[in-house]
Design a protein around this nucleic acid. Structure first.
Length: 406
RNA sequence: GGGUAGGUAGCGAAGCGGUCAAACGCAUCAGACUGUAAAUCUGACGACAAUUGUCUUCGGAGGUUCGAAUCCUUCCCUACCCA
């Protein structure tokens, strides 16, 4: 294995990070790896409680990929054992505990998706139950004795929960120790994580130290705000762009982010070069370019990354068609209806354009329903069903009716 | 073990015998405006029926009452204080 000079590797890795703790140590590790011709072990813990990856997760995965490109070992740790606890980081409530089977299953899903970013051929995947399940009470007590209650409680999320009088279960206190133990178990040289993982990852350093091992370097990556532009991206807040979503959803959601996030998304979620990034920054600040066009570029890049160039082109065309030219999309879901006439309300409900009749009425009253381009506002309308009729509800729900040809 | 305060719609939080399908905020969904922006404004936001109706909801189960989210009994859950 031939490694790039330590300085070069440093510069490459530093891009986009929030902190490298401590930076000199990483540099020394690079030097050592070159001298001894060994790859560094780069650890990334995967949370198996949420198997759907979104582009916020991709921020860290991209960084891991960069390490791979430099010739280092990516080690993905699926926290199947820790998953049974649930990471308390940033949480206001105790997380639901998962069964062992669930964590396994979710782990699998995780890899499939991570494969869109990482070189899975060269990535090592381990489950932390491998070593954590072997810890007996004696060992656990030994581990716990190396830390203090104060140290574990000092983190913000626990402090806040105490202040707000919400519960903290005892097992949650163990989470950082177990995660730290992982670092010790696999001899991690570097651990990657979002800034919310800083505490946990630093505990890893401590565990290693107390067990007489070389300490890992902790690299934190920024947390990506979701499409609402405010909260951290997360599926449960419904502001996430999933990497397995349809190209049109990835694109559409990207278009709905506030302008302030455009650059951040470019920087953290795409693999554009520094030069290109600089140009985009200039364009944004200069105001000469319509931000919409930059967002279109962003959406295209994202689709390209998780699908391919062709998909990206298709998506952007479709988008322009529907939203800019306000035409019908190329592909409209079709439903076969045998009746000759139907109440509009029933039709909307039975075709899932609306989840209930009450809701359908509401939509009609509010002018959200279009049939063949004509707005229908009469709640009691009865539709004569013809082949090829197109229903539109809201901005993005389309449906074409077909009559069985016989 | 003792004491106190609580458990209300997706979340937060009012209500404390009828006017409660339940204020308000957030989220969500429509509409207007736009760059499908964001922000803002307007409306909707349990279901079914339909122009003032019916049914299901306020931790669970029972009960009192013409009538309960509101009172009683009991069970479950949580936080805080004392030990």
């Amino acid at each position: 294995m031939k490694f790039a000079p330590a300085k070069e590797q440093m510069d490459f890795i530093r891009k986009g990070t929030v902190e490298i703790i401590p930076e000199e140590e990483l540099f020394r590790k690079f030097e050592k790896s070159i001298k001894k011709n060994v790859s560094l072990n780069i650890k990334l813990g995967c949370d198996p409680s949420r198997p759907d990856l979104h582009i916020g997760h991709a921020v860290v995965l991209n960084k891991l990929r960069q390490f791979q490109d430099l010739g280092h070992n990516a080690i993905l740790i699926v926290g199947d054992y820790t998953g049974m606890i649930g990471d308390p980081s940033g949480k206001k409530k105790t997380r639901p505990q998962l069964s062992f089977e669930e964590t396994r299953q979710n782990g699998e899903t995780y890899f499939q998706q991570a494969g869109k970013i990482l070189d899975m051929e060269r990535a090592q995947v381990v489950y932390n139950s491998e070593w954590l399940s072997k810890i007996d009470l004696k060992e656990l007590i030994n581990l716990m004795s190396k830390f203090t209650v104060q140290r574990i409680l000092e983190r913000d999320d626990f402090t806040n929960r105490i202040k707000e009088q919400t519960e903290i279960s005892l097992h949650e206190l163990l989470y950082p120790l177990m995660q730290g133990y992982d670092s010790f178990a696999i001899n991690a040289d570097v651990e990657l994580g979002g800034t919310d993982q800083k505490f946990n990852n630093l505990v890893g350093r401590d565990v290693q130290k107390r067990y007489g091992k070389e300490q890992q370097v902790v690299i934190t990556m920024p947390l990506l705000e979701g499409t609402d532009g405010y909260e951290k991206m997360s599926k449960s807040l419904d502001n996430a762009i999933g990497i397995t979503e349809d190209p049109k959803d990835i694109f559409g959601k990207t278009m709905s982010i506030p302008d302030t996030l455009i650059y951040k998304y470019f920087e953290l979620c795409t693999s554009l070069s520094n030069d290109e990034l600089r140009k985009i920054k200039g364009d944004l600040e200069g105001g000469a370019v319509n931000p919409r066009d930059l967002k279109r570029r962003l959406g295209t890049e994202l689709v390209k990354q998780y699908y391919d160039e062709a998909a990206a082109m298709r998506t952007i065309e479709e988008f322009d068609k529907i939203f800019i030219k306000k035409e019908l999309p190329d592909e409209i879901p079709e439903v076969n209806i045998s009746e000759d006439s139907m109440k509009l309300v029933d039709l909307l409900t039975s075709t899932n354009l609306s989840e209930s009749k009450t809701n359908a009425r509401k939509l009609i009253e509010q002018g959200a329903v279009n049939v063949d381009g004509k707005k229908i506002t009469d709640v009691n309308s009865i539709m004569n069903i013809r082949h090829g009729m197109v229903f539109k509800v809201g901005k993005r729900k389309f449906l074409r009716v077909t009559k069985q040809a016989e």
